[in-house]
Design a protein around this nucleic acid. Structure first.
Lengths: 221, 221
DNA sequence: TGCAAATTTGCATCGAGTGCGAGTACGGTC
DNA sequence: GACCGTACTCGCACTCGATGCAAATTTGCA
């Protein structure tokens, strides 16, 4: 549960300062949208909630919603960047004795599958449930996961330029994420539509164990 | 083109006979939509082509499009079922000496990653290009891939009930598909937006080799 | 020939998402 | 503290994907 220092949006980036009033205000609005959306999705369902509803609940013009999020689904994935960042940090913080597999295994323990977990906050449970029930949300989650994979693969290759070429790194990361994702999917399959955070946490841990066992005994590649 | 004496069973799918006139007609219409869509997407681009355009080009009412395909993206994936079917066949046709890994490796050689390849027909190249450039199409492709994974995992578990439990099978399939997908993604990364079928075929083959190498030497799980 | 089921299609409607342009708030300056 | 450039807000009009509904047409079959 590492916290990233500053969100630093797009503007000139006050290279190491407290965000300006304007930025704080914008962040607050954004947060209000996320919370309003979570509340409405929970109470009325995803499809039954319109963007206009969300904006109204956050006391914001409908049009403004789309200046914070490019689509309705996006509001469910507010902190993707930080997750990928955590995985990349894990790669950077590797020990001299660690091989690619070790590093990846450790990286997955923290930020995990990039979109299916994150058991923190009120969004987490809701998000997981919507991923499993709303096609549009699932599609978006899978896209973000793929983006994260690409990013991680790039860094992994950079960390082990001699052992892993770009394709090999991509294959390895894909195998890891695919294995954990598949296992988690199977484990979640039996559960209720709305799973308790602790239950999810437990199952995720089990999924990672199952998925990684084949590797931990013999370093692939 | 031989005609078979028909005992005329039930309306829903004469499961092993020549399709009825109604069904043939419907299939023809469907095919016309696919071809019209492919043509328009190629010439004008995906976003610039509306569903109404497609329907008009196929000389069909706009509303009817949605009785054949549930969404605009769907028209790019007309034969998913057959692909998954091929993979499942490969599992069913396994030899006595084959382990799960062998079977999967063979299954992937034929229908492959379910959505990123299929190098046959005029749709293939176009589809691959659109998957890489249009978010909506990519999202849909990833969903179909995940569905296929689930299905294959279920069958693999059924084929090896003792060696693989459900979660293990899902993890294994996820690892395979993830590895191939990741490798293919990396290999395609350098290429042009529109890749020649032969090029894609060659790269896919290479991706599978790279992805599967770690397993081929020692059966995981 | 005639009826029941399936298909096609037009029409109305909803909601996501975008371009445009005016209004408003903020940041930095003199 | 007033001033101006810039970023953010937000209403309006509009396009397009998608769905419900019901009438018209076609096919299957007795």
């Amino acid at each position: 549960m590492l916290s990233v220092p500053y969100p630093s949006p797009v503007p000139p980036t006050p290279s190491e300062q407290r965000p300006s009033l304007r930025e704080r205000k914008r962040a607050r609005t954004r947060q209000a949208l996320v919370e309003a959306a979570a509340d409405l999705f929970t109470r009325n369902g995803y499809d039954a909630t319109t963007v206009a509803d969300i904006a109204a609940a956050a006391d914001i013009g409908t049009r403004t919603f789309f200046s914070h999020f490019t689509s309705k689904e996006e509001v469910l994935f507010p902190e993707v960047d930080q997750r990928v960042g955590a995985a990349i940090e894990a790669i950077a913080a590797r020990g001299p004795a660690d091989g690619p597999v070790d590093v990846l295994a450790r990286a997955l323990r923290h930020p995990a599958v990039a979109a299916s977990d994150d058991l923190v906050g009120p969004l987490a449970t809701l998000r997981l449930q919507l991923i499993r029930t709303v096609p549009a949300v699932r599609g978006r989650a899978l896209q973000l996961q793929q983006d994260a994979q690409r990013e991680i693969a790039r860094h992994l290759h950079a960390a082990y330029p001699e052992e892993l070429d770009e394709v090999g790194a991509a294959a390895l990361v894909g195998a890891f994420v695919g294995a954990v994702g598949g296992a988690l999917d199977a484990l979640l399959d039996g559960g209720e539509p709305a799973l308790a955070p602790d239950d999810v946490r437990e199952r995720l841990s089990r999924a990672i164990t199952v998925a990684l066992t084949p590797w931990l005994h013999r370093p692939g590649s």
